[in-house]
Design a protein around this nucleic acid. Structure first.
Lengths: 334, 334
DNA sequence: CTGAAAGCGCTTACAG
DNA sequence: CTGAAAGCGCTTACAG
């Protein structure tokens, strides 16, 4: 009202200008802008939200995430939200009681976010997704295992990335390449394994069963399988671990057995977690485009409702070769 | 309105019941609750916010934080917010343009959060704090360097924690204890150094200048100072690095010089970052009570406005001794 | 291109 | 212990 009277127009015109609507005379627009500026006027979100169809709030849903994941995702999400003039509401579900749908339902119905970004493993929780759908909440899924939800999806190509790791190792002369698989309950673990197998096959290499080990994404399992691999009569010259935690386990195994890395054993991980550059030798790994995935997810949430219904965005990853991998039978360090 | 008519009362009474106000007849209360339940009624936050004095939103302000920090803080903050029935809005400021006050001002005036949790280094940014104060936003600071803001503060005792590290090393028989300081621009770095010096003094040990090195909290500086310490004519038997990144650098230095850890060199870090248990030997470190600090910060934000004005909460840390530290001249591993 | 009116769904301040 | 009225600050739907 103050802005309107100062600019000599109606509040409706102020609303139009501030919402960048069409059909406002250029001069009128300037006058309103000037008045708003002079008065340091800021529209109140709760009023806009109550009267209109949008809340200017985007939800980000976590369930027991790792610190590195939260850190990377949120950097992208908050940055994009700031640019888009919306705010990011972070919700993490209680891991104790297990009535997840109910928690989600309550959250969605009181808060009325414009859309919600769902991270693993919730993006594969049918009940949670159904509760959200019932509520009419627009959802975007990040890296779901299953892709038949009919919801917009943002992910990377785990299979291809894994294949590229193998190709890089082959290019360094490795032929005996060990593989440590992640938790088989997660599709990413199987995707990475499939990529490993495909690339080995494409390179004309046989996959020796004893070189393919089953871990569970933990450091302990990496250590255990690393020791097992090094104890083989003919150990591998390179090990590709399905994530960084396990790669660090393999590295610890090599240390324990006095196997030089990368001279006698190359190690490559997956995730490019912060720790990769906090150890020596720095760990070769696959950088997941988490920042970009989060950015894209915000865009999809904000996109016209029908536009992205079947969208599946596959963002480019990056293989980062550092000190932990090198030519087979490599020269001494440095 | 629907709930009111179903329960046969006025909307005002419904409001009273749902807000847990006093002065409602027990039977009336039950009837309203039953009606609300049957109708699956959920109060709409934007309407409550517009009409009332609260927004049910708490802001969490970051500026270029580390993934580990965000992960730990947010776990605590989101959990507590869920319990308190409020929502956490995460804002990270643009690191590029530098008009931080303006960004903060815009955010606070449009969103109208009930309060804001400010993390380092913003909690020491006078301009940001002033912009928030001008706006009337209730602030709680996490681990500020300066403590004269007249604002509620939540922190840990860095000095005491550092002293405890030294005491633990002394208890293991160490007398030649090296110290790697963090970035002197951060008060925590100086606090930890002060704690180191005090404990050395209290233990009756002299501080040899060559054993006290200046790092900057990075892995590279830890590596560099670690190498310098090990190159001394009489190297230390233990090194206390002011954070985990630098401790990992010292560990890398020990590896490079073939110094066994912890047999020939004990190493203790600070932060207890996720990586501490992802390496071998697992890193001894000081666990910051970040989860608890976040929880407490939410409580302070929600507390009666005047109550916590001068509050300073110092939460207990924990020294976690793992494999990287051991008795001086320790026996072989295992 | 512009505006007057109604209404979003709650809480507040007041009366009884 | 309960309720009728006004109002929070915007957008919507409509008229011109």
């Amino acid at each position: 009202v103050d802005v309107a009277s100062r600019a000599g127009v109606s509040i409706k015109t102020v609303s139009r200008v501030l919402n960048n609507e069409a059909n406002v005379h250029a001069e009128t627009r300037q006058a309103v802008l000037a008045a708003a500026n002079a008065l340091r006027y800021r529209p109140k979100l709760s009023a806009r939200s109550l009267a209109g169809a949008r809340s200017f709030l985007i939800g980000l849903l976590y369930y027991a995430p790792s610190a590195a994941f939260v850190g990377a995702i949120q950097q992208g999400a908050t940055a994009r939200c700031r640019e888009a003039g919306v705010h990011l509401v972070v919700e993490s579900l209680d891991t104790a009681p297990g009535r997840l749908e109910q928690q989600v339902e309550h959250m969605a119905s009181t808060l009325r976010v414009d859309g919600m970004i769902i991270t693993p493993p919730l993006c594969d929780n049918t009940k949670v997704l159904r509760a959200l759908r019932r509520n009419g909440t627009r959802c975007v899924l990040i890296s779901p295992d299953v892709r038949r939800h009919g919801l917009p999806i943002v992910r990377m190509d785990d299979r291809r990335a894994a294949a590229e790791v193998v190709q890089a190792l082959v290019a360094l002369g490795h032929t005996r390449i060990g593989f440590v698989q992640g938790d088989a309950a997660q599709a990413a673990a199987l995707e990475r394994r499939a990529g490993f197998e495909r690339a080995m096959h494409d390179a004309g290499l046989t996959i020796e069963p004893s070189l393919v080990r089953e871990g569970d994404f933990t450091f302990a399992s990496g250590l255990q399988q690393g020791l097992a691999l090094l104890a083989l009569r003919k150990p591998p010259s390179a090990v590709f671990a399905s994530n960084d935690d396990m790669a660090l386990g393999v590295l610890a195994a090599a240390r324990e057995r006095n196997v030089a890395v990368p001279q006698a054993l190359s190690i490559v991980g997956f995730d490019d977690s912060p720790v990769a550059t906090l150890i020596s030798p720095a760990l070769s790994s696959v950088r997941q485009p988490l920042f970009e995935m989060a950015t894209a997810a915000v865009d999809l949430v904000l996109a016209p409702p029908l536009a992205g219904a079947e969208t599946e965005l596959v963002l480019p990853h990056q293989l980062v070769l550092r000190e932990s991998s090198g030519p087979v039978g490599g020269a001494a360090k440095h």
